[in-house]
Amino acid sequence: MIVIATSSFIVRKGLADIIKELYPAKKIIGVGFAEELEKLRNQHTIALLLVSAEILSNVNLSSFRNIQTIKLIDFRPDYIEADSANSELLFLDDTETSILHILKRNLALMDKNSSGNKSDSILSDRELDIVREVASGNTNKEIADKLFISTHTVITHRKNITRKLGIKTVSGLTVYALLNKLIKMGDSL
């Protein structure tokens, strides 16, 4: 989801409308307080965060480090600290063209990032464990012993994996695991 965090109602509403027009598919949520933002952060995956400086100064920054962020700046100070590679500045008093430009670029980037992770999200964490083990050449029995589950459970997981990925063979799963960096070259074979 896309989160817009600022105490200004008019900015929240305005940005949400612009983004909706540019990118109708994604869920947009507006929050007005730092506590609300932290709660969202813990419960959901935030694909793109637009956040005002005052809210950002009231949250635990380290838990937001990995989120693609646009900082909303409502006045132009002489000096702005660039504190994170993941964040970008949006001046609220900027021209229409440059605001749209920044939003478009970030939405495209968000799309690219999330499509890179999509393969991970199709499988559950447990299923990912199983793929890793299968791709590393372990038998169902070995996997069951290693993960403390029954062979029957391993087989059920494998059936679900095949159905979700459309990959039936062990060598196919190995290719999948390597392409998605679930295992490293040399872990297999």
Binding site: L165, I167, K168, G172, Y176, L179
Partner: peptide, 20 residues
């Protein structure tokens, strides 16, 4: 069967899983 399954897998790897 295994030959068919491999062909099936190869198609999906090319369609879905190799980088764009």
């Amino acid at each position: 069967s295994d030959i068919e399954a491999k062909l099936f897998d190869l198609k999906n790897i090319l369609i879905k899983y190799l980088p764009t």
